[in-house]
Amino acid sequence: MNILITGITGLFGSYLAAEFATLGKIFGIRRANSSTRLLDEKNLDITWREADLRDPSQLESALEDVDLVIHAAGLVSFSPSDSDLLYKTNVKGTRNLVNAMLEKGVKKLIHVSSVAAIGRSTEITNIDEKFKWTESPLLTDYARSKYEGELEVWRGEQEGLDVIVVNPSIILGKISDDRSSTSIYSYVLEEKSYYPKGDVNYIDARDAAKVTRLVVEKEAWGERFILNSESISYKEFFNQMATSFGKKGPQKPVTPFLLNLAVWYSGIARWMGASKIPLNRSTARISQSKVNFDNSKVKKVLDYEFRPLLETFNWAK
């Protein structure tokens, strides 16, 4: 089986490549200036095809002789200035890929979405795959772009594609992976004092990649799966990390006053070009909210047990 992976040079894409190499030949899409460091470290045999999600003709060429596509490319940003770029990457890019697959007759698509695409509610604290998207003050431009990207995938299914959608929570790789989703480690490494009062949902990158492979082997077409180990408080999350890293964990809860002040400061700092802190009113509310993205569907379908958090931290450092 020939497997084409978009976003293969990113954090999750590199773990997916290693996992799916057991099922077939790996083809990777990259741009001319893309770094392949994460893949080089895994010593994988990859056939490269240069293409850009913004160019439908390049995508059609990249799909030649491909049996399965894993769409892991996407932009993660919570900066208000990136709203247009989020749409172009996560929505239009996905639309171009779906259309190219339909044009070339490539039928099987694994779409890597996000729990952000499922949505949130101020009233509901346990969210599963059946949760219906609704407008909420907890939604970000990133969440909207991932939701609309998913709609393109489900439209592709209606037009003939076999589709599986996976919705991972925060993916924890190794510190050395040095990607946006591993930057959460720096908070404890720098021994910050404050912790949000909300919950964090997370998954080990190795678990996320393995579960994705297993649902493909199950041929669970037409389904979506939340990929999430568990939901725990930020305080416990940071304290376990601090224990593993030999650091002092944050001990002071963030008060509403301090959070509002931080939102104001980060907005001014961004306006002055002095900060890229991903903090705005929506992300501030999210950090204080308690929500569990329910993993019971994956556990039931696969009888899968996720790695303990401390094991992940010990591996990551």
Rank of each mutant, 00 (worst) to 15 (best):
W271F: 08
I226Q: 01
E217M: 10
S266T: 06
Y265T: 07
A269Q: 14
M241W: 06
E223I: 10
G222W: 01
N260D: 02
W221M: 05
S244K: 04
E217I: 10
A269S: 15
M241K: 10
G267D: 13
A220M: 15
N228S: 11
S266V: 00
M272W: 14
T243V: 07
F257V: 07
A269D: 11
L259N: 15
G249F: 12
N228Y: 12
E236K: 07
W221T: 03
K252F: 08
W221E: 04
T243R: 10
A220L: 15
E219Y: 01
E230A: 12
R270N: 00
G246S: 14
S266E: 11
K218D: 02
L258P: 02
F237A: 06
S233N: 13
L261H: 00
E217R: 04
F237L: 02
E236T: 04
W271E: 05
I268W: 04
P253S: 10
R270E: 05
N228A: 02
V216N: 01
F257S: 13
W264L: 14
W264Q: 04
S233D: 15
F238I: 03
S266P: 00
T243F: 05
S231P: 11
Y234R: 07
V215A: 01
I226K: 03
M272H: 00
E217S: 02
A269H: 04
Y234V: 09
G267A: 14
L259K: 13
F225R: 14
S231C: 05
L261Y: 02
K252T: 14
R224E: 07
K218L: 10
K247W: 14
W221P: 05
A262L: 08
N239D: 13
R224T: 08
V263Q: 00
G267K: 06
K252M: 11
K218E: 11
R270P: 00
T243A: 14
T243C: 12
M272F: 15
F225Q: 08
T255N: 05
E230N: 10
